[in-house]
Amino acid sequence: MDQLRGMQIFRTVAECKSFTLAAERLDLPRPTVTNAVQAIERQLGVRLLQRTTRKVSLTVEGQVYFDRCSRVLADVDDLNNLFSATARPHGVVRVELPERMAHRQLIPRLPDFFARYPDLQLRVGASDRFADLVGEGIDCAVRVGTLRDSGLIAKRIGQMEQINVAAPAYLAAHGTPRTPAELPHHLAVNFYSSQTGRDMEWEYLDDGVVKTVGMRALVAVASSEAYLACCRAGLGMIQVPQLGLEPDLAAGELVEVMPEWRPAPLPVSVVYSHNRHLSARVRAFVDWVAEVLVVR
């Protein structure tokens, strides 16, 4: 059995967590599946799967091998479809998304994505950290804000308008600021960078020029969902993209403050490694994200 076929069998066993289910999916005799995995383990000199009477799970070495062979198989699929204009995108796309964007805009629309691309599967990471695309084998990531990754290729898909918001409870306790001059008398929920650990300053546009103010804060977070939760709890004001907040504003759960002093719009980009071409499967996801977000 060739090595690529063996890798496909191993990947299927790992995904199914069962030799029997993998054999059924691949339409192969169970002994063939078992022998293929054992041959890989003998070749590598390590155990890749932990077998019990009830399930099969990956060992530490097995997880490393699974991640690497999944990338190899995806690259082979991309290569085989490189010059095919009619082939439907298929395979696994590994993506990293900003937490709030994933929860509010993208994940609720995934049924539409899979209806359009039934042969694709996604492995989604949703957080506000800056993932190592190359080291973690991630195909692409959506990044909001100014890009600092010089080793990545970026496709700009638009920008998001930002607004200043607060909870009614906060405004009842502290009053409503009208101008930046009043900010020293108010509290913010600070957001700190997962890269530097430093709090981001409060920003506003003054005749097209970005100005910043260091705000007092009781709490600082590195999660966009925690950022919103702290604001709703009345712990301070925040600055967030307006996209997706319309229901909260309409229901009065959040209130826009200082609308004449909004922060600058945030650029939105999809990034991927310079050593990975934008394959049909990744391009399908990138184009879909740009369509769903409809950022200006």
Rank of each mutant, 00 (worst) to 15 (best):
R178P: 00
R178E: 14
T179E: 13
T179H: 11
T179Q: 09
T179Y: 11
T179D: 07
T179W: 03
P180L: 11
P180Y: 03
P180C: 08
A181Q: 11
A181H: 10
A181W: 07
A181F: 08
E182F: 01
L183F: 14
L183T: 04
L183I: 14
L183Q: 02
L183E: 03
L183K: 05
P184C: 04
H185S: 15
H186R: 11
H186D: 04
H186Y: 15
H186K: 12
H186W: 14
L187Q: 14
L187C: 09
L187Y: 15
A188Y: 14
A188R: 09
A188K: 13
V189F: 11
V189L: 12
V189Q: 07
V189K: 09
N190M: 10
N190P: 03
N190R: 07
N190C: 07
F191Q: 08
F191C: 11
F191E: 03
F191I: 11
Y192E: 13
Y192M: 07
S193L: 00
S193K: 00
S193A: 04
S193T: 12
S194T: 07
S194A: 08
S194G: 14
S194Y: 00
S194H: 05
Q195R: 10
Q195L: 15
Q195D: 15
T196L: 03
T196Y: 06
T196K: 02
T196A: 05
G197R: 06
G197P: 04
G197H: 09
G197E: 02
R198W: 01
R198E: 13
D199T: 13
D199W: 00
D199V: 13
M200F: 06
M200P: 00
E201H: 15
E201F: 15
E201M: 12
W202I: 00
W202D: 01
E203T: 05
E203C: 07
Y204E: 05
Y204V: 09
Y204K: 05
L205M: 14
L205H: 07
L205P: 10
D206F: 08
D206Q: 10
D206A: 14
D207H: 09
D207E: 11
G208D: 03
G208A: 03
G208Q: 02
G208N: 06
V209R: 04
V209I: 06
V210Y: 00
V210K: 01
V210G: 00
K211W: 01
K211T: 01
